[in-house]
Simulated scan of single mutants.
Amino acid sequence: MKTVQKITLCAAAVAALTSAAVMAEADPMKAFPPAEEGYQRVVIQLPKVKNPELYRVQLIPGQVMNADCNTRSLRGDIEEKTAEGWGYNYWVVEKVGPGPSTMMACPPGSTRKKFVPVYSGDDDLIRYNPKLPLVVYVPNQLELRYKIWSAPEQATIAKQP
């Protein structure tokens, strides 16, 4: 292949990548599908931090409901998916249903509204990326809460006993 053709192909590739990046920057939600029927799209924009590799995000979907003194939870899946043609990750909360509960005898009047979280069995923490929105699709009856976890810059040395 001639040098001019190689340069032209390289320039075209750079232009295509640049235009895709500019389009995503202009409307970052363009890359993500709209919410399906019965779902809401929740968007979290993480703040910029000095060392993002030291941070992780925990997604905590759940529902505020009347609950007594028993410990309650819901079961469900949090599936990671990729926006086709873009390569950006997003998450979908699915298959939410009743979960385990303790069976203690609660005193009368102990029922109150509280947040009951969905446990998926996978307590994976999501990589912290403040450059892109963190997009999660949640069933309409749920809300999404999240925690940001951080680690110290220095690791602790393990010693033999």
Rank of each mutant, 00 (worst) to 15 (best):
T3V: 10
K6Y: 10
I7T: 13
L9D: 13
A11E: 01
A11D: 01
A13N: 03
V14I: 15
V14M: 13
A15Y: 03
T18H: 03
T18P: 00
S19A: 12
A21D: 08
M23V: 12
E25Q: 13
A26C: 06
A26V: 14
D27I: 02
M29H: 08
M29K: 04
K30V: 15
F32P: 04
P33A: 09
P33K: 08
P33I: 12
G38Y: 01
V42A: 08
V42R: 14
V42L: 06
I44N: 03
I44A: 05
P47K: 01
V49H: 01
V49L: 04
P52K: 07
P52C: 11
E53W: 03
L54T: 04
L54D: 13
Q58S: 12
P61D: 11
G62T: 03
Q63R: 15
Q63G: 00
V64M: 08
N66E: 13
N66C: 01
D68E: 07
C69F: 02
C69Q: 07
N70W: 04
T71D: 14
T71P: 00
T71K: 10
R72F: 12
S73E: 14
R75V: 04
R75H: 12
G76H: 05
G76Y: 07
I78A: 04
E79N: 15
E79I: 15
T82R: 10
A83C: 13
A83I: 02
E84Q: 14
E84A: 14
G85I: 09
W86E: 07
W86R: 04
G87T: 06
Y88E: 12
Y88R: 15
N89V: 03
Y90N: 10
Y90L: 07
W91N: 04
W91P: 01
K95A: 14
K95H: 15
V96S: 10
G97I: 00
G97Q: 14
P98T: 06
G99Y: 06
S101V: 10
S101L: 02
T102S: 15
T102I: 04
T102M: 08
P108N: 05
T111G: 06
T111C: 05
R112S: 14
K113P: 03
K114E: 12
F115N: 06
V116A: 08
V116T: 14
P117R: 11
Y119I: 10
G121S: 09
D123H: 11
D123Y: 12
I126M: 06
P130N: 06
P130A: 05
K131V: 00
L132D: 09
P133K: 04
V136W: 05
Y137N: 08
V138Y: 09
N140E: 15
N140C: 05
L142D: 07
L144H: 06
R145V: 01
R145M: 11
K147N: 15
K147L: 11
I148W: 03
A151C: 01
P152K: 12
E153M: 09
E153H: 05
Q154H: 05
A155I: 02
T156F: 11
I157H: 08
K159V: 14
Q160D: 13
